[in-house]
Each structure stands twice: as C-alpha cells, then as structure tokens.
C-alpha cells in the first residue's frame, strides 16, 4: 500500500521536475515544447493511474487500468465504430446541421426588423442557459427511439446559442461602414452579403464552436432515454449496468476524440473564413 503511493508520488515528482525544467528553460517558446509539456503531464497521470490500480489491486468494476481500457478499445473497434456512426454521425451531426440552418434562417428573417432582434437576443440568450437536454424524453416519445429523436434534441439544443451569436454578429457593423455601403448605392441584400455577414463571421463561428460540444452531449444523453441497441449513450448506460467500466471508458475515449476533432474542424474552417480577423493573426 505504502509502496504504491510512494512510487506514484515519485512518478509525479519526476514528471513535475521535467516539466518545471522545460517551462523554465529557453526552449519554452518552442511550439514542440509547448505540446510536449502537456503530453508529459498527461502521461504522468496515466502512469500513476496504471500503477495505483495494479499495485493496490483496485477492482476493475471501480476503476479499470488504462491498459485495460486500451485493450477493450482495440478489441471492440467495430462496435465502437457502429456506436460512433449511430450517435455522432446520424444523431449529432444531422441535428447540428438542422439546428444551424434553422438558426441562420431565423436570424436572417429577424434581421430585417430591429424590433424582432431586440426581442430575440435576450430570449435566445435566456433559452441557451436552460437545461434543454431535459426535452429528450419528450422527443424520444414523439419521434421514436432511433436517431431522428436524437437529431431533434440536438437541433433544439444548438439552435439558441447559434441564433444569438448570428443575430449579435449581424449587429456588429459600425454606422460608418453601413453608410459607406449606402453611398455605394448598395441595397439590403448586397450590404448583407458583402459587409454584414462577413463581419458577423467571428460571432457565428463562436456560436458554432460552442454548439459542437452541446451536440455531442445532446446526442449521448438523449440515448439514456431510449435508443436502438446501438449508440454511445446506449452502450454507456448498459455497460454501466453490467459493471463493464472498461467499455464505458472506451466510449468516453471515442467521445473525447470525436468532440475535439469536430471542434478542431470547425476551428479550422473558421481560420479559413475569418483569416482577416485580428484573432487569427499568427
């Protein structure tokens, strides 16, 4: 027992010592070192986890070792892929796209009227703070337990943050810029496409980025309320029931990879679209 804790602390100390030296050294500005330091930190935690689980003999129904999780991950790739397809691609992505398109449509419609914009901003902001994921049981009842109900939950969840950001973004041009467009004789639509939409892009992408995580949460949590026998939320809740925690962790690894990949993809597109914005300068 003591041995285990002492050696875990030794690993921690070692990892910390290396990181402290790296952070204090001249190489700290080097991009490779900036990646290396968090990687060492993560690795230190993983090794400590593995050691403590093995040396203390912690039961796998409480906390499986990282090696056991990796093993399970490697052995269940087809199943994990099917779950990924069901939950992320069919549920989350479909809902995300529907929600984003609807938000865009409503924002453009409301944009013509200052009255509506002033109503939509506070109401949308308010809705975005609510626990919307609670509508999942209702949608599962209405649309059945397959991916359609998950897509609907996701669409409602992502709708409000995206809507608020688009509406706020469309208001983000100065009177001077709009006057310039008017002196050019530009109509409403020309001003919209050539000035106001491009100016709104940083806001829009902010909303889209917030919504990626929400979409995954919605799709996974909605499956806790009923799903076909495939899907990440289904797998998590049934594996928890069977105390197969290595499977749960494997699904969480998939969720983490999917989440950061989708977020990264949106951020990459943002970099392409808003290359002119100060925040994108290298």
């Amino acid at each position: 027992m003591n041995m285990a804790i002492i050696s875990a602390l030794a690993i921690w100390g070692l990892g910390w010592f290396v990181n402290a030296r790296l952070a204090a050294s001249h190489a700290a500005q080097n991009p490779a070192v900036r990646l290396l330091v968090p990687a060492i930190f993560g690795l230190t935690l993983l090794i400590m986890w593995e050691m403590l689980v093995r040396m203390l003999g912690i039961s796998p129904i409480i906390l499986p070792a990282p090696s056991a999780i990796a093993d399970r991950f490697g052995n269940s790739l087809p199943m994990l892929w099917a779950d990924f397809e069901q939950t992320i691609i069919k549920g989350a992505m479909t809902g995300y796209i529907i929600g984003a398109v609807c938000a865009f449509g409503v924002a453009i419609l409301a944009d013509r009227s200052d009255f509506l914009t002033r109503g939509i901003l506070p109401v949308g902001g308010f809705m975005a703070a609510l626990p919307i994921v609670g509508i999942a049981p209702i949608f599962v009842k209405w649309l059945g337990s397959d991916w359609q109900s998950k897509a609907a939950v996701v669409a409602v969840m992502v709708f409000f943050p995206i809507l608020v950001n688009i509406v706020a973004g469309l208001r983000d041009t100065s009177a001077m810029q709009r006057d310039l467009m008017r002196t050019y004789g530009a109509g409403y639509w020309q001003t919209l496409f050539k000035l106001r939409l491009p100016a709104a892009m940083p806001f829009i992408f902010n909303g889209l980025k917030i919504a990626t995580t929400l979409a995954l949460i919605g799709a996974i949590v909605a499956e806790f309320f009923g799903s076909p026998t495939v899907g990440m939320g289904f797998r998590i809740s049934t594996s928890v029931g069977r105390l197969a925690l290595d499977m749960v962790w494997a699904e969480i690894v998939v969720a983490a990879i999917a989440g950061s990949t989708i977020y990264g993809a949106v951020a990459w597109i943002e970099g392409r679209v808003t290359f002119w914005h100060p925040s994108q300068r290298k």
Binding site: T212, T213, I217, V248, G259, I262
Partner: peptide, 11 residues
Amino acid sequence: QTIPILALAPM
C-alpha cells in the same frame, strides 16, 4: 471544453 464530459456521469 470540447469534450462531452457529461458522458462520465453514469459511471
């Protein structure tokens, strides 16, 4: 922030 950590809840 980009990961659905809520999925850890049941576990």
